[in-house]
Design a protein around this nucleic acid. Sequence first.
DNA 1: CTTGAAAGGATCTAAGG
DNA 2: CCTTAGATCCTTTCAAG
Lengths: 145, 145
Amino acid sequence: MDQIDMNILQQLQGNAKISMKELAAAVHLSSPAVIERVRKLEEQGVIEGYHAKLNLTKIERTIQAIILFKSIDCKSLAAFCKGHPDVLECYRVAGEISYIVKLATYSVETLEQFIDAAMPYGTPSTNIILSSMEKMVITPFSDDY
Amino acid sequence: MDQIDMNILQQLQGNAKISMKELAAAVHLSSPAVIERVRKLEEQGVIEGYHAKLNLTKIERTIQAIILFKSIDCKSLAAFCKGHPDVLECYRVAGEISYIVKLATYSVETLEQFIDAAMPYGTPSTNIILSSMEKMVITPFSDDY
DNA sequence: CTTGAAAGGATCTAAGG
DNA sequence: CCTTAGATCCTTTCAAG
């Protein structure tokens, strides 16, 4: 994992569909060299996949929320969340909170349904998302430290 | 936005690099038809981009955390977070909490540095992520409701 | 790792339903 | 709005250095 690999990772985070030829030019290498590097990064599991990012509002998931849980049965909650179509991410955490769930749903009614369904697993504290920022590209091995 | 578009979106979420030919076969359409649909979904902003997903641990960001802030100057905090290389996502929320930040950093030392730097903007409650689940594919317009 | 040539696909266009 | 077929273009692959 050298500086060139880091550049490759940055490029692919920003644009998964870039051709190997373009990518090669961007990192000042030949196509075969870059193809081999990408293959290795995939094989090593550094690159986990390539995904389209959707605008949640435009697929009618207009309500997004982050729900915090304290002192609960985390295993059951995790299983519940995993199987629920509105849950985007969930985190088992150590801190003041035990479990954090991010979800995107259709309306306040469907949010209410989720909260009711989650109640058996603990007491939720619901935080509706007003605005958000998600970085699609992070710098591998930043030299900031 | 019909059922075929939803199928297309699901496929592209799971695999951004699928060829239009393969995608066409998956949704039982011809290539030109599918290319035109994808073009429109991009143009409408339903598809925001295509991104490689990295394994954070394998790029040395072994510590991940979700930090909750109460009663703070959200604008300043947002600006600070936006410019900080360790911040992955941040959310302005309505609820018990005012602001939520997800970050990935290199060590407890660099986490401490972040917390110290963020202190001027409010009192953080730090939750270290022990394990997590992130869905890369969500179903557009689920019929569950 | 690079270059260059060859092969294989993918996308695009056009015509037709 | 779709399909099929053909042509073009581009990408990847391979071989040699």
